[in-house]
Write a protein that binds this DNA or RNA. Structure first.
Lengths: 106, 106
DNA sequence: TCAAAATATCATGATATCATGATATGTCAA
DNA sequence: TTGACATATCATGATATCATGATATTTTGA
């Protein structure tokens, strides 16, 4: 039995809650939401494709992806000169959906 | 027909996306997540009750609530000396659930 | 080995967020 | 009208995030 249920009222323990908030913070950014949308809809993609689709500056995009990778939201795989990114944590997509309309039960 | 579908790939228009990201940013904070959890589980409550349950300093709690109110996540109603808060946007709860475990379809 | 393509990292200044303690406001009862 | 209770607001310094432009790294083909 988790003894922290009383203190946290059914929510995860403080340390975990901190991690969750951190991931959520990464999603709380317009461009990063668009990146998640792009990766969901088009599947995995190399950076230059995302860059073209979303019209983001290369350095900025790379940093966004890096942050999301560190948090485990996306996953990277090198293929030759390219690096392909994909969604690694479904919760990213779920949050996007329930916050952008479809996905809410009302 | 929304002509921004092409540019935004099914996501809301930039201005709206900005607002959504802003709301998400408010949820991306451990104490505010706990506040949402408290209001969900216990229903509406006066500030002093939330303060006691979550052991948050009065000023800080008041500011958290104020920010969330401005964003439309919660709603306030004065009853005598007290001000009762309640969830105003179900998406807050949905995000909490899908990010904290229960609520995701896997 | 060199050049170019694709991506990553760094440095920096601007802005936003945070926690804290102090003070102000509003409401009710005496 | 005064006092106390409940809540809100303010001021401030510390820290985090952001966008930008410059530079570095990795990989492949010539």
């Amino acid at each position: 039995m988790k003894t922290n249920s009383a203190q946290c009222g059914g929510l995860p323990a403080p340390a975990e809650l901190e991690r969750i908030a951190q991931s959520l913070k990464l999603l709380a950014h317009p461009q990063r939401l668009r990146i998640v949308g792009r990766l969901e809809r088009g599947g995995a993609a190399p950076v230059y494709a995302i860059m073209a689709d979303l019209a983001l500056p290369q350095g900025a995009l790379s940093q966004h992806l890096n942050h999301m990778k560190r948090a485990g939201l996306v996953q990277a795989e090198r293929r030759g000169k390219e690096v392909w990114y994909r969604i690694a944590d479904r919760r990213a997509v779920q949050v996007l959906h329930c916050v952008c309309g479809r996905g809410g039960k009302k």
